[in-house]
Design a binder for these strands. Structure first.
Length: 804
RNA sequence: GCCCGAGUGGCGGAAUUGGUAUACGCGGCGGAUUCAAAAUCCGCUGGUGGCAACACCUUGAGAGUUCGAGUCUCUCCUCGGGCACCA
């Protein structure tokens, strides 16, 4: 009989699935729903590498599994196609990004199809389609109408290489996340989304989802909630007040100086000579130097503290009217809290360092270990509060300040509002106009989408203006409100916008092939399909896409569009795939492996099996060509077994078969695909030893294999005379009783050392075990001349004779 | 510096959660088949000692708890990942 030929067979089944619509999501169905989603790709010019499909294979395997378990599964795919590579390519070649994107998508789709994923392609979406991004614009308008999108001109992160503003989330260690260029501060007008409004809910609800703990922790840290209070220090002999935020009101008596950030409002006043001080020049010099430093330099690790005292002014501590000096130092950040701090050197590392360097007073107010002492403890040197513990002190001191009208309880967040505008071409135009009479006016629903204008000049201007600003036909328009001449907004949205709601678009496709207004027609479908039950993608989106999408979802919940608080219920991150020998795959090293070559040489099923077998799903793993061939052998051996199926008794195989069903079921459910495959290999090896493979057992085996190797499974299914498709079958159930009929090894130990083992049927009783042990020759030998102290017996496992 | 995660054969990795450590796969060795090779099949494969039966040792290092520890506790080392002047 012929050998298994993947190329021919896989094409055959792919065509069959497509023709029979085997994996199309059922629209009217009484089955329970399961929404299984991949983080959709940016269709880059390079195409897929073997790292991409790792997550896709996992969700696809899981989708098959769920279908066979009787669920109606929604498993869609789409394209996150706005972004800089296509735009940069357009600048270089003059080819419109739309064309590039179209070609890339075509290529990606061919690659995905060759692997035989069971996507419902009828729900495919593309974020750069006008019918798609009119909805992205619609959501923006809703945000604007609720005051959650606003214009601002605070200094923001600016990447001089990408020539656009960036969100905080896109800056990593002071470098642009995309191109690793050093980010600058720049004052440009921008659109900002008030994500901080949702900080508490984003924090609270993260407890309710089934996500990897590290990702949850990263979001918590990024939001960075801290509770404390604002304290007002007056500036002696002036009307000025300096407000500081502290989480430790209990250390207020230890505040021996104040420190202002160089950006502080008061420093500006001093430089403008609005407040008289003795050393303006010195302060001005320091401020100038600090301003020149990049964020990277300012927040550099282990950097020495610097600062200048502002001479001729004193601050007054509201709790005891003590007069303390005021400093300006760049270790205090202008954008966090109040831009100024009370410095408590005895109980804060940074303040301690500062005080040491400039010989400032260090006064202990909390009892405990060496200074700086950062823990809580008993308050000392604290007037009427002396003797209290920190916990109570925090409240009492704050209450006293409130009473004195010198403070209030406050909460601060590290999370900042989301800088949402980009000064680039290839993004969704922000759908508002600027009207002299009416101010900022959003477009009407019927005027969406606001299309991207055609141009031949995609280059970013670098001035903080978008390239759209040069296109007069686009800029000049009419105000939707008063019909007078007005100008369009020319910034575009960031790459993240389209991915904030795409999981909803797949659901909307159920209702209408085109995504059409109004929103109300989709609400029932949202109710039916949300939340996404399983979401799989890389961990790199922890505080970007995953935070942004949660924010938009919560907003859509508030305006009654969706009915769940969270978009993604269970999240899994796939680990990286490294090249041969654990070296990172890269074009320059020439070690990038394309799934195409694997599919060509071994077939899609081998690729799929290997991707799932090479290690724990969330672990970093190294690709090995040799390992791939192991999967090929596995399939060949199954093929051989198929040839010798026949009607024979299943009895001997039953316990192993049912154990394998159990193991595969549980392992798939918990994403342990590697051990699920191992157990299938075990069963296959066992069947191989038989002269005749019981057809019944083999049938079950093929069902278990089907989610991992769908084409091959269909072929085997047909070969043993079954009607396709195997995916119309229900997942096998296991019998706990049959598993127990298995022969097992029990272990005899003497003093904790294994001395012999014996094969018995499980369920043997303890007395019997003990008798067998005491009669065992090897056991006898080891306990000769020793008194038995006790005998430990674990049912069906082990017996340990402990001697004195 | 702080917070997670992980260290198991020559390699990728298992271990029902405290009960035979090294399942499964790769590689290696020996044999069968072959004119020969590939492929395939059968056997062996943690280390040390021993002709052997067998014994001892072994899950990053060291201690502890336990009849019994890869698994629990403490100390330390190494490698990944995240955060990093956030008051």
């Amino acid at each position: 009989m012929e050998k298994y030929n993947p190329t021919k067979v896989e094409k055959k089944w792919q065509k069959y699935w497509e023709r029979k619509k085997v994996f199309k999501t059922e629209e009217k169905s009484t089955k329970k729903k399961f929404y299984c989603l991949d983080m959709f790709p940016y269709p880059s010019g390079e195409g897929l590498h073997v790292g991409h499909p790792r997550g896709y294979v996992a969700t696809d395997t899981f989708s098959h599994f769920k279908r066979m378990r009787g669920y109606n599964v929604l498993h869609p795919m789409g394209w996150d196609a706005f972004g800089l590579p296509a735009e940069n390519y357009a600048i270089k070649t003059g080819i419109h990004p739309k064309i590039t994107v179209e070609e890339n998508i075509k290529h990606f789709k061919e690659q995905l199809k060759s692997i035989g994923f069971s996507y419902d392609w009828s729900r495919e979406i593309n974020t750069t389609d006008e019918e798609y991004f009119k909805w992205t614009q619609w959501i923006f308008i809703k945000l604007f109408e609720r005051g959650l999108a606003y214009e601002d001109t605070r200094p923001i992160n600016w990447c001089p290489s990408c020539k656009t503003g960036l969100a905080n989330e896109e800056v990593v260690n002071g470098l642009c996340d995309r191109c690793d260029f050093q980010v600058e501060k720049k004052d440009i007008r921008q659109w900002v989304l008030r994500i901080t409004e949702y900080a508490d809910r984003l924090l609270e609800d993260i407890g309710e989802v089934d996500w990897p703990e590290p990702i949850k922790e990263m979001q918590r840290n990024w939001i960075g909630r801290s509770e404390g209070g604002d304290v007002q220090f007056s500036v002696k002999d002036t009307e000025e007040v300096i407000e500081v935020f502290t989480t430790r009101p209990d250390t207020l008596f230890g505040a021996t100086f104040l420190v202002l950030a160089p950006e502080h409002r008061l420093v500006k006043k001093i430089l403008n000579r609005e407040i008289k001080v003795d050393n303006v020049k010195e302060v001005a010099d320091y401020e100038k130097k600090a301003r020149k430093k990049s964020d990277l330099e300012r927040t550099d690790l282990a950097k020495k503290k610097t600062g200048v005292e502002i001479k001729g002014v004193k601050a007054v501590n509201p709790i005891n009217n003590e007069e303390i000096p005021i400093w300006v130092a760049d270790y205090v950040l202008g954008f966090y809290g109040k831009g100024g701090i009370m410095s408590v050197p005895a109980h804060d590392e940074r303040d301690y360092e500062m005080a040491e360097k400039y010989n400032l007073e260090i006064r202990r107010v909390i009892n405990g270990g060496d200074l700086p002492y950062l823990e809580e403890g008993e308050m000392v040197n604290s007037g009427e509060f002396t003797g209290l513990c920190s916990k109570k002190g925090k409240k009492d001191v704050l209450n006293k300040l409130i009473e004195l009208k010198k403070g209030e309880k406050t909460v601060n967040y590290k999370l900042g509002d989301w800088v949402f505008s980009r000064q680039r071409y290839w993004g969704e135009p922000i759908p508002v106009v600027h009207c002299k009479a009416c101010g900022i006016v959003p477009l009407k629903e019927k005027d969406l989408p606001l299309k991207l204008p055609e141009t031949e000049h995609y280059e970013p201007t670098g001035t903080g203006e978008s390239p759209l600003a040069k296109i007069e036909e686009f800029v000049n328009t009419i105000c939707p409100k008063c019909n007078e001449k007005a100008k369009r907004e020319t910034n575009t949205m960031p790459q993240w916008a389209g991915s904030c709601w795409y999981y909803l678009a797949f659901i909307m496709k159920e209702e209408s092939e085109k995504l059409e207004f109004p929103i109300s027609r989709y609400k029932e479908s949202f109710r039916k399909w949300l939340p996404v039950d399983l979401y799989v993608g890389g961990a790199e989106h922890a505080v970007l896409h995953l935070l942004y999408a949660r924010f938009w979802h919560k907003f859509l919940y508030d305006i009654g569009v969706v009915s769940t608080k969270e978009p993604f219920y269970r999240l899994k991150n796939q680990g990286l795939i490294m090249g041969e020998g654990g070296i990172k795959m890269s074009k320059s090293k020439g070690n990038v492996i394309s799934p195409d070559e694997v599919v060509e040489n071994y077939g899609a099923d081998v690729l799929r099996l290997y991707e799932m077998f090479l290690g724990g799903f969330e672990d970093k793993v190294a690709w090995s060509e040799k390992g791939v061939s192991g999967m090929k052998r596995f399939l060949d051996k199954i093929n051989e077994n198929a040839k010798k199926t026949g009607d024979s008794s299943v009895k001997d195989l039953d316990p192993l078969l049912h154990q394998t069903i159990k193991k595969a079921t549980e392992d798939i459910e918990s994403f342990k695909f590697n051990t699920a495959i191992s157990s299938l290999m075990n069963l296959n090896n066992e069947m191989k030893r038989l002269d005749v493979v019981p057809k019944e057992a083999f049938t079950v085996f093929i069902k278990l294999l089907a989610p991992f190797a769908p084409h091959f499974a269909e072929e085997m299914w047909e070969k043993i005379g079954k009607e396709p498709s195997v995916f119309g079958e229900l997942w096998p159930e296991f019998s706990e009783k049959l598993i127990k009929e298995k022969k097992i090894n029990i272990v005899f130990q003497v003093d904790g050392k294994v001395r012999d083992t014996k094969t018995v049927f499980s369920g043997i009783d303890k007395k019997e075990m003990k008798k067998m042990a005491l009669e065992n020759e090897r056991v006898k030998k080891w306990k000769i001349g020793k008194k038995i102290k006790k005998v430990v017996i674990i049912k069906d496992k082990l017996l340990n004779i402990v001697t004195e």
